[in-house]
Every structure is written in C-alpha cells, then in structure tokens.
Amino acid sequence: MEHASDHWSIGIFVAVLSIIILYKIVTAQRGKPPTIRRIAGLNAIDEAVGRATEMGRPILMVPGIGGLDIPALQALNIFGYIGRSVARFGNRTILAVADPQLVGVGEEVIRDAYTSAGRPELFNAEDVRFLSDRQFAFASGVAGVIEREKVAASFLMGAFFAESLIIAEVGQRVGAIQVAATNQFTQLPFFIATCDYVLLGDEFYAASAYLSKNPTLLGSIVGQDYAKLLILIVVILGTLSACGVLMLPAGHVHDLLQRFMDLFKS
C-alpha cells in the first residue's frame, strides 16, 4: 500500500493501533508503571554473564546483519543492559557489527554501559568491531572471533539470515552459552537447535522493557498487547464473517458481512 487513501480502512486501523500504543506509553510515564511477566530466556543472561566471568573469557554480542534498523536498535538496547551487567563483573564485551553505521551507535552503547557501571577504564573501543557488510564474510569473521577469543557467552539478537546457523553452531562448538532473538521467523529453527535460549517473536521487543523496568518501554509493551487484542478481535470477526458469507443466503446481513471483509482485503 502506497498511501493510506489507497485503502482508508487499513490506514485508519494503523493509526488506531498507533494511538493505543502511544496512549499506554503516556499513561505509564505519568502513572504507576505496569508489570509484565518474566521471560524465561532472560534468566539465562545473568547465568551466561556470571559463567563468562568465572571462566575469564569474553562475551560476544551480535546485533544481526540488517543494518541500522529497528531490530538492530532493539538489540543494542538489550545489549546496553547486558553490557552493564558484564561491566559490573569486570568482564570484557566484544560487539561485532555488519553495518558501519552501527559502529558509532554500538560504541556509544557499550561505552555507556561500562561508564554507568562505574568501570569506564575497562571499555576498549577495539572490541566494537565492524567485520564486513557482506553476509558470509561477516559470518566467517564472527566465527573467527568466537574461535580465537573462545567466547564464554554469545548474544545473537536482531535480523539474522542464513548466517545464523554458522555463527551459532561455531558458538556451540566452543561451548558458549548462547541466547538468541530474531525478527526473522525462518531463522528460529536454527537458533532453537543450536542456542540455549531463544526469545520468540515479540519477546524480543519485550526483553528490554523487562530488563530496564523503564516506564516508557513497559507502557509500550502493554499498548502492543492491547493492539494485539484488537487485531485478534478483527481476525475472529473476519472468520465469522467469512463463515456467514458462505452459509447465509443473499441479503442485508450477507452484504454487511461481505462489506466488513472487504474493509481488510489487500
């Protein structure tokens, strides 16, 4: 869809979803922040950071290969919190990026994590590494880092494609605890087969809210859930309408149901 006017009903629906999310963010900022359930995969973060410290080996973080996009920013958001935990233990963080635009942002995030944990002297700019923007050159670069540095834990979060299995399998081989999260549905099976914990679907977006307890992020998650509820209602009504159209004879109700279905037709 190029413009909202191509299909007003969908344009308005997107606007309604946005308003719900924004409303929940604003109310969470002004009132009592909501609570959200614990995500199992996040328990592994502390375990992985602690184990890496015991072993005296670094932690690897990879924000996907998608460039400076929403999943990468979300991943960096989570890495900021993990980085603080790593810094508190006095351990080393390696951030491998596949997009040059992420070098600056990534450096800021990791430096900030070490600074806010009171250990700015431990931050090493050389550990924020741009390896390559070519998919498999990047994969071989990350595999090299995992093998050479013998990382104790790796966090693979963001947009991953075919390189996911190469990176995660090499991590498996060196015995690293691996936590993955991706917006790419097709890569989930590979991560599930090779990683210790995988954040599924929108758990990826909920992770930073849970870790930070930031009211803005918590409000956003609640807003997303309400938006999801609205989508669910539309799906159920759509299914019932489709059944009605098939079963009812031609008439007003039939036309009404058909019109409702047409509202959301691509």
Binding site: L17, I21, Q74, D202, Y205, T216, S220, Q224, A227, K228
Partner: peptide, 21 residues
C-alpha cells in the same frame, strides 16, 4: 508471530520518532 513482531516494530518506531526513549 508476524502480528507480534509488526506491532513491536510499530511501537519501537513510534518511540524513536517521537523521542520517547
């Protein structure tokens, strides 16, 4: 899963656009 992810993108985009974060 796609519905959830798409809403996550929408919410993150709104937060970034309006500098709520």
């Amino acid at each position: 899963v796609t519905f959830g992810l798409a809403l996550g993108v929408l919410a993150t985009s709104l937060r970034l656009w309006l500098s709520l974060e």
